[in-house]
Simulated scan of single mutants.
Amino acid sequence: MFKGSMVAIVTPFKADGSFDEETYRQLIDFQIASGTDAIIPCGTTGESATLDFDEHARVIQVCIEQVNKRVPVIAGTGANSTTEAIGLSKNAKDMGADGLLLVCPYYNKPSQEGIYRHYKAIAEAVALPQVLYNVPGRTGVNMTAETTVRLAEIPNIVAIKEAAGDLTQVSEILARAGDKIDVLSGDDFLTFPMLACGGKGVISVSANIVPAQVKAMVTAFFAGDWEQARRLHLELLDLHKAMFIDANPVPVKTSLELMGKCAAQVRLPLCELGAANLEKLKTVLKKHKLI
């Protein structure tokens, strides 16, 4: 259902820390003009953890308004409270979101049965296509292939964004439930091998700064030009890695500022990139002729 090159879009802030709506609208138009297949507001890259409830709703609403049905909007509405996630998800549905991105419950460290019941409850409460999001480096718990396969039986759970960095786990999901659930890459540097295993696309951080290039790689792969896709994958590898020299989204927001697209402003407890990493980032961006 949701395929291709999708962006986990940043949430731009003004110098006073408030949501910069006008810049956000410009970033959305930049994405659509570059061929991005779906926009995902309020993900990890969108700093959802530091948005209050009103801001969270406003960011999603502005995204839906600006996209204006040109591509799907998959709203990030996950939480470590099932009740809260259901509330956020219902709100996104009422605003007109096309789907939901639901991060695995974080900090609680639930059992696999608890994870299953969490997602099942949301799916039963909110009639929208839902994308699971497994990112153990952030949440502290890995959702196993077994749990994903169980959840794939629920009709409106349509995909999983896999960011565990484990191609064996990805392959097991596809081998056992690839006809029931789509697998999307959550790690830019693993998108090409995940597509080769049967993945359907990527929810990308790097696409914030190089949307056309990420789209070109995915397009080449699905057109059967695997050599071109492989070449683009390898060319972008250092850029993908640079987006994680500090906590996401600090490097990607810094890149956008250096490119003149939005301020690097993040909210505490995140802070600006250190001097040494800033120089490393500039080197990579210059190599790719982005600055």
Rank of each mutant, 00 (worst) to 15 (best):
184 L>E: 08
50 T>K: 06
15 A>V: 11
247 A>L: 10
248 N>E: 01
227 E>Y: 02
187 D>R: 06
184 L>D: 07
166 D>P: 07
212 A>V: 02
63 C>H: 05
226 W>Q: 08
159 A>L: 13
269 P>Q: 12
263 A>S: 15
190 L>G: 10
28 I>R: 02
118 H>A: 12
51 L>Q: 09
234 L>C: 05
65 E>P: 00
210 V>K: 04
178 G>H: 04
248 N>G: 06
27 L>K: 00
188 D>M: 13
61 Q>Y: 03
169 Q>V: 11
270 L>P: 07
258 L>P: 00
217 M>L: 14
290 L>C: 02
7 V>N: 11
81 S>R: 02
171 S>M: 14
54 D>R: 12
215 K>V: 10
168 T>W: 05
272 E>H: 12
257 E>D: 08
7 V>P: 03
268 L>I: 14
183 V>G: 09
160 I>V: 15
174 L>F: 13
209 I>C: 07
249 P>R: 08
236 L>E: 06
62 V>C: 12
114 G>E: 08
80 N>R: 05
30 F>Y: 11
90 K>Q: 13
283 T>I: 02
247 A>S: 15
199 G>N: 09
105 P>Q: 06
165 G>V: 14
202 V>I: 15
157 I>F: 04
59 V>E: 07
88 L>E: 09
272 E>G: 11
246 D>W: 01
209 I>H: 01
231 R>V: 03
236 L>K: 05
230 R>I: 01
79 A>I: 05
125 A>P: 00
110 P>E: 02
216 A>C: 10
195 L>P: 04
288 H>T: 09
24 Y>S: 09
279 E>T: 14
243 M>C: 11
272 E>R: 13
226 W>K: 14
161 K>G: 12
82 T>L: 07
228 Q>M: 14
174 L>R: 12
271 C>E: 00
231 R>G: 00
288 H>Y: 11
215 K>A: 13
280 K>N: 10
80 N>I: 08
173 I>K: 06
125 A>R: 02
151 L>R: 09
164 A>Q: 12
100 L>G: 05
275 A>P: 08
123 A>Y: 03
231 R>L: 08
283 T>F: 04
1 M>N: 04
207 A>I: 04
65 E>R: 10
242 A>G: 04
277 N>Q: 13
236 L>F: 06
274 G>M: 03
129 P>K: 10
223 A>I: 03
174 L>A: 14
71 V>P: 02
119 Y>R: 11
155 P>I: 02
192 F>H: 15
73 V>K: 00
49 A>T: 15
